[in-house]
């Protein structure tokens, strides 16, 4: 049967229409599956019994962004506070007296990050060369002895890694790590102390003193010489995220 001239003319157009609708239908199908996964099921995968990691990751990223924004706002507020405090101290009077007391209380309470001259010493576990593993690990009493010596020598503030030492900070071994306040820390333990750097270094370098005891032949811990620095930074105390009962703190 011979095709009419009209049908022959419409054939390419018809093929294009069919092709277009095929693409549209395929995209529609793709959208249906993605939409069903992401919206109708709230991110749950019905075709998989596995947990939906991506949805948790997305929430985590969102909360991290919020936290970063809060940190930026907090540091901005802190800058303004410190500027006004400096101003108050310059002007003198009752406010300056309160500000001086506040400075001492903040340093002692550990609520602010501090900078100043000081020393840095790092303690790492030794290499096990004998049967007594405990000898080659850094223990809570090792860290306590160094921190104690630094305060005997007049340190203003001390931190171990990112944990600031406060009146409530316990240094306590819990299995493979050392808990310092709320933080679980592993080696190397970087101890930073703000104070008269030459006095702090001399106290630590005392022959037969705390560092020599840690370097003793039967321990094998790696203990660096105290490095005197013109400026070091000690972080602020970070409060516990969760109460010990497991509830979020108020």
């Amino acid at each position: 049967m011979k095709e009419s001239p009209r049908t022959a003319t419409n054939a390419p157009l018809r093929r294009r229409v069919v092709g277009s609708w095929t693409i549209v239908a395929a995209v529609f199908g793709l959208m249906v599956s993605v939409q069903y996964h992401d919206v109708a099921l709230g991110g749950a995968a019905i075709w998989s019994a596995l947990p939906d990691v991506s949805s948790v990751s997305a929430r985590l990223a969102a909360v991290d962004n919020v936290n970063q924004a809060l940190r930026r706002r907090e540091s901005g507020v802190m800058r303004n506070i410190l500027a006004l405090q400096s101003d108050a101290l310059r002007r003198g009077g009752a406010t300056a007296l309160v500000e001086r007391q506040l400075h001492a209380a903040r340093v002692l309470a550990g609520t602010v990050a501090l900078t100043g001259p000081g020393v840095v010493v790092t303690i790492s576990d030794g290499r096990m060369s004998g049967p007594d593993l405990a000898q080659f690990l850094t223990h809570d009493w090792d860290l306590r002895s160094v921190v104690n010596e630094l305060f005997v020598a007049g340190a203003d503030a001390v931190s171990i890694n990112s944990a600031r030492i406060t009146a409530q900070t316990g240094v306590y071994c819990i299995g493979p790590v050392v808990r310092v306040g709320n933080m679980r820390l592993g080696p190397p333990f970087v101890i930073r102390a703000i104070g008269d750097s030459s006095v702090l270094a001399a106290a630590l370098n005392l022959p037969g003193g705390v560092l020599d005891a840690l370097r003793g032949a039967n321990r094998g811990l790696h203990v660096t010489r105290p490095q005197q620095k013109r400026r070091i930074r000690v972080p602020a105390y970070e409060p516990a995220l969760f109460a010990q009962t497991g509830e979020a703190l108020p």
Binding site: W21, A25, A26, G29, L30, V32, S48
Partner: peptide, 25 residues
Amino acid sequence: SLKALFGVSVTLGILLGLEFHVDRT
């Protein structure tokens, strides 16, 4: 034929969606 093509296209789209969207961890 058009209906069949439509059905195949939608199914193809769903399959492609699953292929690229399902976590195979």
